[in-house]
C-alpha cells in the first residue's frame, strides 16, 4: 500500500468542461434544439449501435438456420406458395382500390393514396420512463417532423434527425399530444396523450378535451384529426376501450384508448414524409 499524490488541476478542468456542456445543453433544449456535443456523441454511438443490431440479427439468423434448417426449407416452400396467392389477391385489391377511388371521387371525398413510406429499423429504445423515445435508422435521409407508424397505427414523429438516423418521440411520451377525432361522420375532436399510469394490458392513451356531451363509445376508432398541422388527418391511433365521465360534470368525458401500434415490440417502423 502506498500513498499517491495526484494533480487536481485536470479534474477541475474536466469539471469546468462538464459545466460548460451542461449549460450549452440547457440553452439548446430551451430553443428546442440539440447541443453540438450531444449531436457529436450520437454521431459516434449510433453507427456502433447500428452495427451491433445488424450483428445480432445475423447471429440470430445463423442460429435459426443451424437449428431449424429442414423445417425452414419446408416453410419456405409454403411461403412461396402463399406469396403467389397473395400476389393474386393484391391484383384483385388494386382493382378494388381503383374502384373505391373512383367512387370517392364521385362522392366528392378525398381519395386516400396507396401506402407510402420507407421502412426503418429501431436501433435504440429510451429507458427513461417519462421520455418515451426510440432511435431509428431508415434507408433514406430523415427529416425533422417525419411521421412514423407501423402497419397497425401511428407511432410518433421524428424530433431530431441526423442523416438517415433520427430520434422519434412516441405517442406514449409524457410531453407529447396529438390532435385526434373519433372515426365517424362528424366524429368529435379531442387531444390524445399518454396515460400517466400503465394500465392492465399495456400502456394506454387518453382522449380528452372532447366537447361537452361528446358521443364516444367503446370500440370507436380514434384517428389523427390533422388539426395543428403536426400530423396529417386520418392516421389510425387506437381503439376506445373505456369511457370515463367526470363525477363533477357528467358532460366532461375522457376515453381510454388502446394504441394500435405495439409499442412493446417496435423493431421495424415505416416513415412517411409530411404530405407524402
Amino acid at each position: 500500500m502506498h500513498t499517491t499524490h495526484y494533480r487536481w488541476e485536470p479534474v477541475l478542468a474536466l469539471a469546468l468542461v462538464a459545466a460548460i456542456l451542461t449549460v450549452v445543453q440547457h440553452r439548446a433544449r430551451g430553443k428546442g434544439e440539440v447541443s453540438l456535443a450531444e449531436r457529436a456523441a450520437q454521431r459516434v454511438v449510433w453507427p456502433a449501435q447500428s452495427a451491433l443490431v445488424t450483428f445480432g440479427t445475423v447471429l440470430r439468423n445463423l442460429n435459426t438456420a443451424a437449428l431449424h434448417g429442414g423445417r425452414l426449407a419446408r416453410e419456405r416452400d409454403e411461403l412461396l406458395r402463399r406469396v403467389a396467392e397473395l400476389e393474386a389477391d393484391k391484383i384483385a385489391m388494386y382493382s378494388y382500390y381503383l374502384e373505391n377511388k373512383a367512387m370517392k371521387a364521385k362522392l366528392g371525398w378525398d381519395a386516400t393514396g396507396v401506402p407510402t413510406g420507407t421502412p426503418a429499423r429501431v436501433i435504440d429504445w429510451s429507458s427513461d420512463p417519462r421520455r418515451k423515445r426510440i432511435t431509428i435508422e431508415a434507408s433514406r435521409e430523415l427529416e425533422q417532423g417525419t411521421i412514423v407508424r407501423t402497419e397497425a397505427g401511428l407511432v410518433g414523429r421524428v424530433v431530431e434527425a441526423q442523416g438517415n438516423r433520427g430520434i422519434v418521440v412516441l405517442l406514449l411520451d409524457a410531453d407529447h399530444a396529438v390532435a385526434a377525432r373519433i372515426l365517424r361522420e362528424d366524429g368529435d375532436h379531442g387531444i390524445v396523450y399518454a396515460a400517466p399510469q400503465e394500465h392492465e394490458g399495456g400502456q394506454m392513451l387518453l382522449l380528452s378535451k372532447l366537447p361537452h356531451g361528446a358521443d364516444v363509445r367503446v370500440g370507436d376508432t380514434v384517428v389523427s384529426s390533422g388539426l395543428g398541422g403536426v400530423y396529417p388527418a386520418g392516421l389510425p391511433i387506437g381503439v376506445v376501450e373505456r369511457v370515463e365521465r367526470s363525477e363533477v360534470n357528467v358532460a366532461s368525458i375522457v376515453a381510454c384508448v388502446k394504441p394500435y401500434a405495439d409499442f412493446d415490440h417496435l423493431d421495424y417502423v415505416r416513415v412517411i414524409r409530411r404530405g407524402g
Binding site: T22, R39, A41, V44, S127, D128, T135
Partner: peptide, 10 residues
Amino acid sequence: LLASVQGAWL
C-alpha cells in the same frame, strides 16, 4: 455518450 443517446440531462 450515455446521456446523449438516452436524451437525458447532462
